[in-house]
Design a binder for these strands. Structure first.
Lengths: 319, 319
DNA sequence: ACCATTTATACTCTCCTTGAGCATAAGATG
DNA sequence: CATCTTATGCTCAAGGAGAGTATAAATGGT
């Protein structure tokens, strides 16, 4: 950076030209399955160069997604910006800045003629789904590999620190599982060379953990998006962006659980939703259900005005 | 964005070249005053083009700041990325992408020969300091102007919505003050043309609110940084990045209060800090104090390992 | 020496939230 | 009609948060 006081207009004549790319984590929930939009057979997130014909980054993203899926994006939030030095080894390759976004959409139809389609996000992060308890392969497969990695640290102190980190992020040694640590877990697995994308030559033989890989750092971006969303649903009414116009409280709960990757106490969930007046009855009842029919609710859009900025609560502890 | 699946390397030959700028919100706290680093006589945040000789954006920022102040940056976090279409009207001006960062630093010395210096952040946002209660000019000056703006809306419904928004963000009509809504307040004042930076020609005569303006959108970036920091101190032990090696609990409390812009209950503050084992006694006592001398504490760096990712609590309600 | 003042520090108390469980209602199915 | 399934209402105990009381340890003035 230069010392000169804010002189954007006097742009450097050379060397600093870059391209700007957008990368999108588009989320939808269908029948309790959280999906993300992917291209290239599920091996990449949708991405492309930013066109400066748009007013802003967000506008560009919305326009593109809406053209792609035919549906408006309910909620859009910027995630993170990286700088890439072009492909390694290829000095001619241009520098680029990648700006990633999280987008929530209600429907999961993808326009015809596009190669984009929806993939379940737990295909990429099977260890993140704790709705049926901690997946067995964490204890059976991941934990031992992490232990081996921790043991491989040069000093006993470092070994202990590594293992402590593993135990915290993966909820080992009787610790609680923290569903928000998606990115930390991914980065830990990367460091331990348990992720194919990390594949350094000398680690080719390293044992690998389940989960579908993605191009470049796309799985990391996805992890960032999931982490952000899991944190956000706890204090902002964003879940509703993923719901149909009318829904039962159980459907709402299932969506929250799908995102959080863990179950919540049903009665407490209802208590919180109702006491916050986030929803109102439509008067109708859910059709063709098993068991007692449930009331249908709709999101009270008024709350967006009442406390567009204020909080929401969900029975997911925020420790 | 293009439909092509992830082809960064096949960069567009034209039109998409941009420059990347970094903008920094650097925060330090001295004697209960939160400061930010500014240039150009306090009218701009430090910024400059990103040099691709650095490994990453964060590295570039750190290097630059350390060169500038001679001190390592304790904590760095990305804030937001904007795209600018060059200066309006100047078609030749290059497009640019501005990436803003929040940085915390312990000392507030600025290297010699630089024009950078520290400014109190409440100079720019006087309405954000509620440590001595709500500033009188909010009720006396801001609220009436906001009310006038709300009344100017075309329909009664819109008038009500506008006013509701004002009341929520500024804690009017007996609502609670929410210190995290820094950005929302700034944007509201902007919309109401009460901010010089908003200055549209036809509003030149509009009454203006106290607070020092900044170049371009720098005050908005600063608002983003303050908001982020106010939110962060509630669940991450970042305050310590701003403290000297040893401090009393009151000093720590004053720093938190300086950032949050509001007072906290002393006994409860201590209770929380101690029960979380964030600090440990140094054994020494504070010198030359008024009143009973206080024990000196230091931050327990171990907690960064123990729960690098886990939470912290402060007696600031998160409604 | 004594007192007012200032800050430090230890407890207590009450209300609210949260996590969890029990009980009952209202449908479908055989 | 018994049983299964989901919906929905209610209670209870433990912990946390907000706020107040009481006491201790220093300083400076009279």
């Amino acid at each position: 950076m230069a010392r000169s006081p804010h002189k954007k207009s006097s742009a450097p004549a050379s060397g600093n030209a870059v391209t700007a790319d957008l990368v999108a984590v588009l989320v939808a929930v269908t029948d309790g399955t959280p999906d993300i939009m992917t291209i290239a057979g599920g091996s990449a997130l949708p991405s492309g160069p930013f066109e400066f014909t748009h007013r802003s980054l967000q506008t560009a993203l919305r326009a593109w997604v809406e053209a792609q899926t035919g549906h408006p994006l309910g909620y859009v939030e910027q995630l993170y910006t990286f700088a890439d030095r072009g492909r390694s080894g290829d000095a001619k390759s241009p520098h680029s800045v990648s700006i990633s976004y999280l987008g929530l959409t209600r429907e999961d139809k993808v326009g015809e003629g596009f190669e984009a389609h929806w993939s379940g996000w737990y295909d990429y992060f099977p260890w993140e789904d704790h709705r049926a308890g901690a997946p067995a392969f964490i204890a059976r497969s991941i934990a031992p590999k992490l232990k081996a990695w921790a043991k491989a640290a040069p000093s006993p102190t470092l070994q202990r620190e590594r293992w402590q980190r593993c135990a915290i992020t993966f909820g080992l040694d009787d610790r609680d599982w923290n569903e928000e640590l998606v990115l930390q877990r991914y980065e830990l697995l990367w460091e331990a060379s348990l992720i194919p994308e990390a594949g350094r030559a000398h680690d080719r033989e390293a044992p690998i953990v389940p989960g579908k890989p993605m191009t470049a750092d796309h799985r990391r971006i996805l992890a960032t998006g999931i982490a952000r969303l899991r944190a956000k649903i706890k204090y902002r009414p964003v879940v509703f962006e993923l719901m149909p116009a009318e829904f039962t409280l159980l459907q709402l709960q299932r969506s929250v659980e799908a995102l959080a990757g863990r179950l919540v106490h049903k009665q407490n969930f209802r208590r919180l939703i109702e006491q916050q007046e986030l929803v109102e009855e439509t008067g109708a009842m859910a059709a063709d259900t098993v068991g007692r029919p449930a009331k249908l609710f709709r999101f009270r859009h008024a709350v967006l005005a009442e406390r567009a900025v204020a909080g929401t609560k969900l029975p997911l502890s925020r420790t």
